[in-house]
């Protein structure tokens, strides 16, 4: 009965999606359906992007506590966006179509991810404490630089970058949805296609090399994919610190096997349920009294402490 958890999770996600689309709808369906469908698609896309990026990052870094957000991936995204606005200026940025800006930013993040995290992982793999410390320093540095630049630029220009600095699930940037979907689905397809390689990579540098994997190349490739996925989710909803950690840890509890063929879909389903179900509850039940990101980060943060204290880091 190994496929049972997947089936149950599918049903729950479907239920959440249907309720999200229909519950409390006022007015013409011809408006409600496309309006909500856009937001739902965005939520699901972000959910899958974050869970996949987290699984992949944990595989290449060889631990179960760190996630792209904790290591400052999305902070780097905001920093690069701010830097673009700062150096290009308001006029240039406004003239750029949002898609071009998004594409440029994604490209820069991929470059930054490989340069920074590629070397970091090569040097500190297996040294969890050093990695956490470096990640925290990176993330803080990126956020401080972002804040510094944001203070220096024109208030009008500030609007452009403000959206990339706060998590927001209520106003998903649906303009970017087509390009984001293509990038995200492409990246996920590649991750899924190489799921057996990731299983081998998870054994560590020596064992993977012995089995004939080009570890350095695979690590760089994985980081590129993580950068694409983080770009998509950050561009659509902004940074969410602990969602990835929460859903991937839950997925590991649901399924004890270490194979990516099972971990990736289960984490994606749990992530989708958390975001769609959470947004459903907050929009319809709690009438938007609390942003979803606050709840997710609170739960995820508690879970992070729990994992650290339990010492089950690897």
């Amino acid at each position: 009965m190994r496929s049972r958890p997947v089936a149950v999770l599918c049903v729950v996600l479907l239920l959440c999606a249907v309720l999200y689309m229909t519950l409390g709808a006022k007015g013409a369906w011809s408006f409600v359906i496309p309006f909500r469908a856009g937001k739902l698609a965005g939520l699901v896309l972000v959910a899958v992007a974050i869970s996949t990026a987290t699984v992949l990052f944990q595989t290449v870094s060889g631990n179960r506590i760190l996630t792209p957000s904790i290591m400052g991936f999305d902070a780097l995204y905001s920093l690069l966006l701010t830097g673009l606005v700062f150096f290009l200026g308001a006029q240039a940025t406004i003239q750029l179509p949002p898609m071009a800006l998004f594409g440029l930013n994604t490209g820069l993040l991929m470059l930054g991810a490989v340069l920074l995290f590629g070397t970091l992982i090569a040097q500190t793999r297996g040294d969890l404490l050093r990695m956490i410390l470096t990640g925290i320093i990176f993330a803080t540095l990126f956020r401080s630089l972002t804040a510094f630049w944001q203070r220096m630029i024109d208030p009008n220009e500030f609007q452009v970058i403000q959206v990339a600095s706060y998590a927001r699930f209520n106003r998903i940037d649906t303009d970017l949805l087509p390009l984001a979907s293509v990038l995200c689905l492409g990246a996920i397809a590649l991750v899924w296609h190489r799921r057996r390689q990731w299983d081998v990579l998870a054994l560590g540098h020596d064992a993977a090399t012995n089995l004939g994997l080009r570890v350095r190349l695979e690590t760089v490739f994985a980081l590129l994919l993580v950068a694409v996925l983080v770009s998509v989710s950050t561009a659509l909803v902004g940074p969410v610190a602990f969602l990835g950690l929460l859903v991937v840890s839950l997925a590991r509890l649901v399924d004890g096997s270490e194979t990516h063929a099972r971990l990736l879909p289960i984490a994606a389903l749990i992530s989708g349920i958390t975001l769609v179900g959470g947004q459903l509850a907050l929009e319809r039940v709690f009438a938007l009294s609390t942003p979803l990101s606050v709840v997710v980060d609170l739960l995820g943060g508690l879970f992070f402490f729990f994992l650290l204290l339990k010492g089950r880091s690897r």
Partner: peptide
Amino acid sequence: TAALARILAILPQIQDAA
């Protein structure tokens, strides 16, 4: 390297991976 993995194997250290 993939071809070499069919000719030569080394006992790796994976104390606590996976």
